[in-house]
Every structure is written in structure tokens, then in C-alpha cells.
Simulated assay, not measured.
Amino acid sequence: MIKLDHVKVRHVSMKLKSPFQTVNGLVVVRDTLIIEAQDQDGRIGYGECVAFSDPFYSPETTTTAWDQLKNFLLPMLNKKRIEHPSELNAIFSSIQGHQMAKAGIETAVWDLFAKQQGQSLKEVIGGVRDEVESGVVLSLMDDIEKQAEEYNKKGYKRFKLKVQKGKEKETIERVQNVVGDVPLMFDGNGQYEPEDMLYLTQLDDLNLLMIEQPFRTDDFYYHHQLKKQTITPISLDETIKSGHDAFQAIELEACDHINVKLGRVGGYQEALQIHRFAKVANMPLWCGGMLETGIGRAHNVALASLEQFTLPGDLSESSRYWEEDIIEKPFTVKDGKVSVPSKPGIGVAVNEKLLNKRTIREFTHTF
């Protein structure tokens, strides 16, 4: 039984090394929520709620997540005995939406549970890899050739490009001229309309690894239509908010790959369900990123160690975004790969001094 003593929620503010620009929004300062779940023996599990300050990626924000955690989700745990972290998904099921808030506490409890078992989180969830292949994202603000050259030297296995509609080919060719045959993809961020279908099929000659989320968030139909008409693989991101969404996407043949983000789907239980569906369908998965701190990145690396995560994920090293991360030993990329921590839980030590410095408000819920 997981006997929680208290949960602390911190609102942490961290300035990015350089602004991160997509067609939907600009991030200069990354506000995130760090959740600490402490048991009665003093062990702490860490999670991260990856909602942004503004609702440009999803309806959730740090403010809505703070409210959900404080007034709804954490109080629900006072009434329940928790034997295993997989039970949280059902406990929270009466709350509609708010996947990122749910994932924040759920990931913290999974970390705590693994520490109680004396096992790494990779072992607890059934991961099979000691290293995972790393890709890197280049935003619209980046000096793209300079950035591509720098990250190519580090051996990144895949480059994901943020693009403006109508300038995809130009952007991709600029990077191809620098990185050669390294796989490239671009993130559509839902900016395309059905009338852009023919235009997108004309990008087949670029030999892309995939196009991610070209159509709107709630769309399965037009992604299915595009998949039938293009040879470039289609990957879904924002459309997949649950295991059921993944099941529909697979059955409707709406995509070739799925980008799995713990925050977007509500935590490990839904992510593991997606993994089971993908394994049956033999569909490749990859782990997306949300400008996480080292805590969220550690969870992503553990997730990417699962068998069906065969494509390089958004698992760049900590220095890609931060001058100082809030973990003692930041993640690094060597030969295009990131090592999966083998110590208990997420396997990283939190820099308490820096975490306290970056915390702008906090509350504690006691059990």
C-alpha cells in the first residue's frame, strides 16, 4: 500500500536559454508545476505538470492545473486506499479532462512507488532499453543552420522542424544542406486545412521521416484521407488524448505513428494502454517533449524505454533549453542517445537549492 503523508505542489518559473517559437505561441519563460509526493517514511516521488502558462497548446494552463490539484484531485486521494499507482487513473476518472494536472500527480506517485520497490521506473513499467535515441526540435526562432550544425555534431538521430505554412520546403532544404541524410520531420501544429491536402502530398519528394499533426486537434477523418494519398508517414500528437483515442486512430487508419506525451494523455496508465494497442498493431511510437525540466525529462526517458518506442523522441539534453536544470546531473546526449537512469524511481537527484530558488509559490496537501 502506498501511504502518502503529504503532497507539495510548486509553481516553478525557469527562463529558457533562447525563446521557443511555434506557429501557435512563443515561450520565453517556462512556468511549470513540480509535484512532490512524500510517503510516511520520508521518500519523495517527483512529477511534473507540463501545462503552459497560456492555453495555446491545450486548454490547460498552470493556473487551471494548480486549481484542479488543490481543490479536486488531491482531496480525492484522502478518501482512497492506493495499492498501486495504476489505480489513480480510475480514481480521477470522474473529473473530465485536465490530463496534465492528473499526469502531474500520477507521475509523482509512480516515481514514489518505484522507489518504495527499490527499482528503476524503467523496470517497473516494463522498459527494455538502457539507452534511447534522441531527436531535437528546432523552433521558428532558431538560427536554423547554426543550430542544425551544432546538434548534428552531437549525433542527434532526428531533427523536428517547426515550420510556417508555405515555407516548409525552404526550411527543410536549409536543414538538409547541413545534416545530410539524418531523418527530418516537421510539426504541422494543426495549421493545415482540408484544401491543403494536395499541397501536403506534393512534399513527398522531400523524403521526410514523418509529418506530425497537420490537421486540427479533434480530427481523425482528414488525417485518414491524407494517409491514403501520401507516401510520407503521418504522426498524431494533439489528437491523441487517451488510450481510446489511440485505439480509434489505429482502427480508422488515421496515422502511421503516434507521439505519446505523458501530460497530454493523463499519465502512465493511459500511455501504457496506448503502448499495448500499438504493439498489437505493430505501430511505431515516439515520445514527445513539452519543454520539461529534468524531472519531466526523466519520466519521458523512462517511457521511451518501452519496446514499441522505436522512433527517436524529443529527448534532447538539458542544456538545449536550460543554463541550469533543477536536477543535479543534467541529461546529456552521447552519439545521439540518452542513457536511461538505473537508480530507483526516475533515477535523478533533484537540486533542492535551485528548485527552491525557482519556486514562486507552493502549497502542501496533507493526508
Score class of each variant (00 low, 15 high):
K3D: 14
K3L: 13
H6W: 13
V7T: 11
V9S: 05
V12A: 02
M14Q: 14
L16Q: 06
F20C: 03
T22C: 08
I34Q: 02
E36F: 12
A37H: 09
Q38A: 14
D41E: 15
G42S: 08
P55Q: 06
F56A: 01
E60H: 09
T61E: 07
T63M: 11
W66Q: 10
M76E: 11
L77A: 08
N78A: 15
K79Q: 14
K79F: 12
R81M: 14
I82A: 08
I82M: 08
E87W: 10
I91V: 13
I91E: 03
M100P: 06
G104L: 09
I105M: 09
I105N: 05
I105E: 04
E106C: 06
V109I: 15
W110D: 03
W110P: 03
W110V: 07
F113Y: 14
Q116I: 12
G118Q: 08
S120C: 07
K122W: 08
V132Y: 02
E133T: 09
S134P: 03
I144E: 05
N152M: 08
K153I: 01
K153S: 00
Y156I: 00
K157F: 03
K160A: 02
G166K: 09
G166E: 05
K167D: 12
T171Q: 10
Q176Y: 09
N177T: 11
V178L: 10
M185V: 02
D187W: 00
Q191I: 12
M197C: 09
M197P: 05
Q202I: 08
L206P: 05
N207V: 11
E212M: 00
Q213P: 02
P214H: 05
D219N: 11
L226R: 00
I240F: 00
S242H: 06
E251Q: 15
L252H: 12
L252W: 12
A254E: 05
C255I: 01
I258T: 01
V265W: 01
I274Y: 00
A278V: 00
V280K: 13
M283I: 05
E292W: 09
I295V: 13
R297H: 13
A304R: 03
E307A: 14
F309Q: 00
T310M: 05
E317T: 08
S318H: 06
S318P: 07
E324H: 14
D325T: 11
I327P: 05
P330R: 04
G336S: 04
T364C: 12
T364M: 11
T366A: 10
